[in-house]
Design a protein around this nucleic acid. Structure first.
Lengths: 261, 261
DNA sequence: CCTTGACCTCGTACACCGTACAAGGAGTCG
DNA sequence: CGACTCCTTGTACGGTGTACGAGGTCAAGG
């Protein structure tokens, strides 16, 4: 087993997935097991958030001491990485194959990705911090890459299009999920929390020259309904922009090819 | 002064900016000062990263004990929030006004934003976690909103377009900056680190059916030059997609208005 | 000049964290 | 019975953020 001390000497090991180890299955008295540990982590992460998860609490939840976990896992980071990959496994990849065209496939993927980030608010901070190269993450990445490839875009333009869509979803899902998490931690609804946050600069005379322009946007939003409804609407509008943009790039390449002839 | 204990009773206080307090200026023997604290934090955050910053180390850097800092700041989180807003102040807003059209303005803003995230690798994790409602952050948000407003898009479509562009930049900058940070921590160049990360599943027979499709993308990338060059290229391509998409939405709205008549 | 009070800094202490290390129990096999 | 492997535990170390109370410095007022 690779001890953390060895890892300190070998800082290159930056992901669990870069150094495959046999999973130790739980024949022990506590009936522990890497899957059980990961499942419990996800439950606690969903309920309490990333900052509140500690090895001691996780162990207690599993009826065991903190150090027992280290038989199955090298570090706490490993647990997070396993939990992340497990969540990537929630993607319904079959639904994506059922989509009619690449536009639909991208929309379905984007919505699933966003829903996942909102459902598990600890995912975006973690996904930003670790390499996402577990088997389930790779499977999702592959589906995304396929959808982009189906646009017919040239190879050198594909990564840009892929980034535009999925880094957007990541960014959007991050803001949305963290906003929801903070609202919940403050014991408020998202609507209450929104009013509270805006109030900060709405009432501040120092900002008022700047807000004037933003005011109408804020008002338009407020008139449109709840914060949740606005998250949905803006997300859809952004997807419209992105797909229209890719369509343009595809058309431009077709145009260029025609002139070439 | 609001003590953390009071904050515990009033969890609604979720940002320094939601509860203005006079800044205590440093007439004390140590010559301390909120600005000096924030400047030192930024320096240390840039050098050592978010995880390595501790109140004790920051205090030592300033020739003082940890508890002295608490005279100027309620919690460590406050320091991060102040540091973030100070970094938003690095934006060169004048350069944006100089841009010719909204397309240019969006490009300049996006590039500045991305550069900022890469320059300060601790910004994206922090920006995701806290509300960004300090004066400098608001000023930047205002400029972004103006640029989007200049597209001529209807009010209800503007937030979607704004999200598409700037959540993309946030997502992209996050991945890029965290990748760079991890590479640096592993003592590798980005190119070495990239090869290392890809190796994980490139050589794994379990993944090989899936990689086949991704292989050509990876090869295309590899043939194009260094990882840094690819970051730049893909970012520009993504911006192309986004701006083309907004242009389409603008044109569609104009079309709709014409038919209306 | 002396005292008061505001301002600032510090030492100590608490609860908690991740995890190294070594001891020990339980079960299986010779 | 002993030995060996697998799993769990107790203890301990060096860190963290920060509460609390004591003290030191200095300007203003009597």
């Amino acid at each position: 087993m690779v001890k953390a001390a060895d890892r300190a000497k070998n800082p290159a090991r930056s992901s669990v997935w870069l150094e495959k180890r046999a999973t130790r299955s739980g024949g022990g008295p506590a009936g522990l097991d890497r899957d059980r540990i990961v499942a419990a982590s996800i439950r606690m992460l969903d309920e309490e958030g990333l900052a509140k998860l500690s090895m001691r609490k996780l162990a207690t939840e599993l009826g065991v001491t903190a150090m027992s976990l280290y038989w199955y896992v090298d570090t706490k980071d490993d647990i997070i990485e396993f939990a992340m990959d497990s969540v990537y496994g929630e993607f319904d990849l079959a639904a994506i194959d059922a989509a009619r065209d690449w536009q639909d496939r991208i929309r379905v993927l984007a919505r699933e990705y966003r829903a996942m980030l909102v459902r598990h608010t600890w995912m975006s901070p973690s996904a930003g911090q670790y390499l996402n190269i577990g088997p389930n993450a790779i499977a999702v990445a592959y589906k995304i890459q396929q959808a982009i490839s189906d646009t017919g875009l040239s190879l050198d333009r594909q990564p840009g299009a892929m980034s535009a869509v999925f880094q957007f979803v990541y960014g959007y899902g991050t803001i949305e999920s963290q906003f929801g998490r903070r609202a919940a931690e403050a014991g408020m609804s998202q609507d209450e929390f929104y009013v509270d946050s805006v109030k900060a600069f709405r009432d501040d005379p120092e900002f008022s020259p700047q807000i004037e322009g933003m005011q109408e946007i804020l008002d338009e939003r407020a008139s449109h309904g709840s914060v949740g409804a606005i998250w949905d609407r803006d997300f859809d509008h952004a997807l419209d922009v992105l797909i229209a943009g890719i369509e343009v790039m595809v058309a431009r390449e077709a145009e260029g090819a025609r002139r070439q002839k």
